[in-house]
Every structure is written in structure tokens, then in C-alpha cells.
């Protein structure tokens, strides 16, 4: 074996160990989700889900707490995605198709806002919602979520809108379409991938969000899925809990996210540092 191939082999082994470290916890979640309580409470862990069952999933799905939280999460997410995409789309049109006074300041404000941490504002939002009597209100939470995702959604859509040349629209207008018709029949279909990508982004944000939900959804009946998952962890501080069920619940929360994330990942990560790479 030449030093060159030895080095390559060592690097490959190292890479596989690293891969195991990063995929490990995800695997551990899936693995534990299929094992029953007795297997999980033995002193030696079981490393494969062989001999396991889907009982934990059945138990979680039958749990009324899960179904309620799923309902709240889905409602908030759907409302937010629809509102945010519609509103952000109009905003993206404004900043990419028109020049107007204050446009640059507006864009700067958007970029700065989307860097702001929710944790730096959530107590103020909590006070506002409480004085409006909107705590534990699905619409209230959706409004806060919409405000959180709109800046970035506008920025993302702006790129897509700018990618469709206005000349296409103008050509259609020369051919006799009205401006609205030209927009709806020429530009809009070309923007569909952009709308889907930003919709997925908004979905991921709402589905995973914990901080703002924690302060505004204080009643148990109004918990979103992340808050419901936290309930198990709180219980684990004082007593031994059924980790198999917690992992099954986590899996149910994570799987839609992993699927959607994989769908848009390449677009998101290339965009993230795109400017710097292009140099």
C-alpha cells in the first residue's frame, strides 16, 4: 500500500466516523421510536429496531394531546403560509419591478429585520397580545409568524421576480393582452417554483417555531406540536418517562420537515452564500 492510498483510506474511515456522529442521533430517534418500554429501560441499549413494533406510533396518534397540537400547528402553519406568500409576493413585485422613493431603505430594513432574534422581542409581543386579548389565539400567533417570515420571503421572491424579464410581459401586451392578463398568464406561471420554495421556507419556520409559541400559547389546549413535545421533557425531569413514545412523537414532528427540507435544501444553501462565492 502506497502512503497515498493509505492516507486516502484513513481519511475515508474518518469521514465515515464523522457521518455516523451526525446521522447517529437521527438514527437513534428512529430506532428508539420502534422499541417498547421494557427494551428501552434495560441497562444495555438495543442498537437496531429488530423485534420492535409500531405500537409507539399508534399510541402517539391515539393521544388526544397530539391530535390537538397537530390541529393547532397545521392551522397556524396554513394560515401563515398563505398570508405570508400572498403579502410577500406583492412586496416582492414592488421592490423588483418599480423604483420609488424609500425603496432602498425598505430593503435595508427588511434585511435587518430578518436578522433580529425572536428572543429580543417576544416579551413585548407577549404584552401586546395580552393587551389585545389575543393570547392563545391561533390568528394572533399566525400574525406574529407572518411578520417573522415576510421579510425573508420578500427577499427570496424578489430574486425570482427579477429573473422573469418584464419584456416577456410587454411582448404579450403588444400581442393584445391587458397588463393584468399578461401578468397572470405569462409572469405568474414562471414564478411558481419561487412561490413553492418560499412556501416551504415559511412552512418550515412555523412548524418548528418554539419561542414565540411558548409565550403566546399558554393554555394546554392551544399548544403547538413543539410545545406539546416539550411537555414530555418537562415530565422527564421528575420521573422516568416512556422514551419510545417521545421518540415516536419526535419522529412524527420531524419527518415532514426532513422531507420538505430535502426538497428545497439545494436552493436555500446555494442562495445563502451565493454572493460571496460568486465573488
Amino acid at each position: 500500500m502506497t502512503p497515498q492510498t493509505l492516507k486516502k483510506a484513513l481519511l475515508s474511515v474518518l469521514a465515515l466516523i464523522v457521518a455516523a456522529l451526525w446521522a447517529g442521533p437521527v438514527y437513534w430517534m428512529l430506532n428508539s421510536a420502534f422499541l417498547d418500554k421494557i427494551t428501552l429501560s434495560s441497562t444495555t441499549p438495543q442498537f437496531t429496531p429488530l423485534g420492535g413494533s409500531g405500537d409507539n406510533f399508534v399510541a402517539v396518534i391515539k393521544d388526544s394531546g397530539f391530535l390537538r397540537a397537530l390541529g393547532v400547528s397545521l392551522t397556524v402553519t396554513v394560515i401563515t403560509v398563505i398570508v405570508a406568500i400572498a403579502v410577500a409576493f406583492l412586496g416582492a413585485l414592488a421592490i423588483s419591478r418599480f423604483t420609488f422613493r424609500g425603496r432602498r431603505s425598505f430593503v435595508i430594513a427588511l434585511l435587518l429585520i430578518q436578522m433580529l432574534p425572536a428572543e429580543g422581542l417576544f416579551i413585548a409581543q407577549y404584552k401586546m397580545m395580552s393587551s389585545l386579548n389575543m393570547l392563545n389565539n391561533v390568528l394572533g400567533l399566525s400574525a406574529l409568524y407572518a411578520a417573522a417570515v415576510i421579510p425573508f420571503t420578500i427577499w427570496m421572491l424578489r430574486g425570482f421576480v427579477a429573473g422573469v424579464p418584464p419584456e416577456l410581459e410587454e411582448a404579450a401586451m403588444v400581442d393584445g393582452l391587458s397588463r393584468t392578463q399578461a401578468f397572470l398568464r405569462i409572469t405568474f406561471p414562471l414564478l411558481a417554483p419561487g412561490l413553492v420554495a418560499s412556501g416551504v421556507y415559511a412552512f418550515l419556520q412555523c412548524w418548528n417555531e418554539f419561542t414565540v409559541a411558548l409565550v403566546t400559547m399558554t393554555e394546554e389546549q392551544r399548544r403547538t406540536l413543539p410545545l406539546w413535545l416539550r411537555g414530555f421533557i418537562q415530565a422527564s425531569a421528575n420521573r422516568e418517562i416512556d422514551w419510545g413514545q417521545v421518540m415516536a412523537a419526535s419522529t412524527l414532528v420531524a419527518v415532514p420537515v426532513i422531507i420538505f427540507f430535502m426538497l428545497v435544501q439545494s436552493r436555500m444553501s446555494s442562495g445563502l452564500v451565493g454572493g460571496a462565492v460568486k465573488g
Binding site: 434585511l111 430578518q114 436578522m115 425573508f152 427577499w155 427570496m156 424578489r158 430574486g159 425570482f160 427579477a162 429573473g163 419561487g194 421556507y201 418550515l204 419556520q205 418548528n208 427540507f261 436552493r267 436555500m268 444553501s269 446555494s270 442562495g271 445563502l272 451565493g274 454572493g275 460568486k278
Partner: peptide
């Protein structure tokens, strides 16, 4: 995981 990604275009 929220990436502030600019979809930098033309």
C-alpha cells in the same frame, strides 16, 4: 436553520 438567503439573480 432559517437561512437568510438572497436568491441573487441578474
Amino acid at each position: 436553520i432559517s437561512p437568510p438567503a438572497p436568491a441573487g439573480r441578474s
